[in-house]
Simulated scan of single mutants.
Amino acid sequence: MLQTEASMVKIRGREIPLATTMVGGYPRPHWLHGRVFGWGDGPQYTSMEQRVAYEDALKVCVHDQAKAGLDLLSDGMQFEDSEAHGYQIDVIFHLIPEMLGGISNFGDPNPMPQWSAYYVSEVVDKITWKRPIFQGVVDGMKRVTGDPFKLSIVGPAQLAIMLKDLHYNDQRAVALDLAAALNHELKRLHQIYGLDSVQIVDISPHYIDKQSWQSEANCRMFEGLDDVLKVWHVCYGRTEGQVAVFENKVANVLRVFAETNIDVLMHEMAGRDYAEIASFKRFPEDKILCAGVINDHEMQIETHDEVAHGIRQLLEVIPPERLMLAQDCGLRWVPRHIAAAKLQVMCDAARTVRSEL
């Protein structure tokens, strides 16, 4: 099992300083198109053909990560229907709400211009767990690899600000009931399959850093999952970035993160030229930092020396046993050969620096 002990990352009992992983999405192979999972009261998959195509895509995604040498694998969010950007349904916004009780789909269009093509789901009753949400992801990964991997999901605070509340009139209450439903989902998956790691994908600290309930909601989601490595990816955005988020945010995020039961903070560094590195001198000593050392915003493949230099800078403020490495954000919009090369150079640089310790 993957765990942290004495502020050190262990992967199935093996201590790995500068452990490498992948955050977010990975390019889909050409044969996988459209939505993979069903919704509402429908079947788990949209068709058997789509299930086969999806599990084959997982094999490709896992192969590229294993070839690069990642220590903790990811499903690369291969279920995300990202080809039709601007379509009415978006997996990030709608996969979880569509599976929960108390939420009505197909509300008004999103008022944010960047997302105006998507509708906003509406909370119309008490939010409850209704049916499996990520069983297909965990089951699929278990079928294609025996290596440790993490499940990536949108966190309850993030979901709370993406829904229109017509029932609670209290955003905190929405977030806490979302957290309770997701906690049920994760405990169920852990009981059936065993979970190595779960990663929250979250932009909410950029927008609601003064709201203490986001820490409360994240803690609620992970209750009773002490032996699962808990990761919080604070997202500055992929190629398009986040709306109205331009300034550095580490100082605010650290305060919120310190209040949680989450083990690892995953934060962008390379795309910001390591400008926030000094802020991590105040990083909680009982936590792990997973730093982005690969810039997902650029097609240019980093050189080995560039990545190694970035890792060495991080080691000036975080010891190697408390430092993990990843990209800044997902590689979904990058051509696959470039994405694979970026993962490879990250792992090669990590091995070089690890040999110097």
Rank of each mutant, 00 (worst) to 15 (best):
D64C: 06
T128N: 14
D170C: 08
L58F: 14
S279M: 07
K150L: 13
R238P: 00
K59T: 15
L265T: 05
L32H: 12
Q50F: 03
E247L: 08
V138H: 10
K342Y: 02
V293G: 01
E276N: 06
D286A: 07
I318C: 04
Q135D: 15
H297L: 04
H337G: 01
P27G: 11
D125V: 06
M221F: 06
E55M: 10
E276V: 08
V62I: 12
R35N: 14
L178P: 07
D71Y: 14
A275C: 01
H94C: 05
R272P: 03
G330F: 02
C347V: 10
V174G: 07
V353W: 05
I96G: 03
S212P: 04
D226L: 04
Q3F: 09
A180I: 12
G140V: 02
D147C: 01
F257D: 03
C219P: 00
H297K: 13
A339M: 05
V334Y: 05
T20F: 01
I192T: 12
V245Y: 15
A157E: 05
D108H: 05
P43Y: 09
Y193P: 07
A270H: 02
Y118W: 09
T46D: 07
P335K: 09
P109T: 11
R336W: 04
D41W: 05
G69V: 00
R172W: 03
H30R: 14
L100P: 08
L159I: 11
R272L: 04
H309T: 10
R14H: 06
G237N: 08
P29Y: 12
A84Y: 06
C235N: 09
G76C: 06
S47A: 03
A251S: 10
Q135Y: 13
R351L: 04
F280A: 00
I208K: 02
E122W: 01
M346N: 03
L163P: 06
H94K: 02
F149V: 14
L186P: 15
G69D: 00
I192M: 02
L182C: 11
R332T: 05
Y118E: 12
G38S: 03
L254N: 06
G241T: 13
A244F: 13
Q300G: 00
A341V: 00
V234Y: 07
D226T: 14
K187M: 13
T260M: 02
L166I: 09
A350L: 04
G330A: 07
Q191L: 11
T303S: 11
M48H: 13
P320V: 05
Q344Y: 03
V124H: 00
H190T: 11
A175S: 07
H85D: 09
D108W: 06
G40N: 08
V253E: 02
T239W: 01
S116D: 07
A350N: 06
K249H: 12
F93K: 12
H33Y: 10
I208M: 10
A341W: 02
A181R: 09
G271M: 10
E268R: 01
G25C: 06
V201G: 14
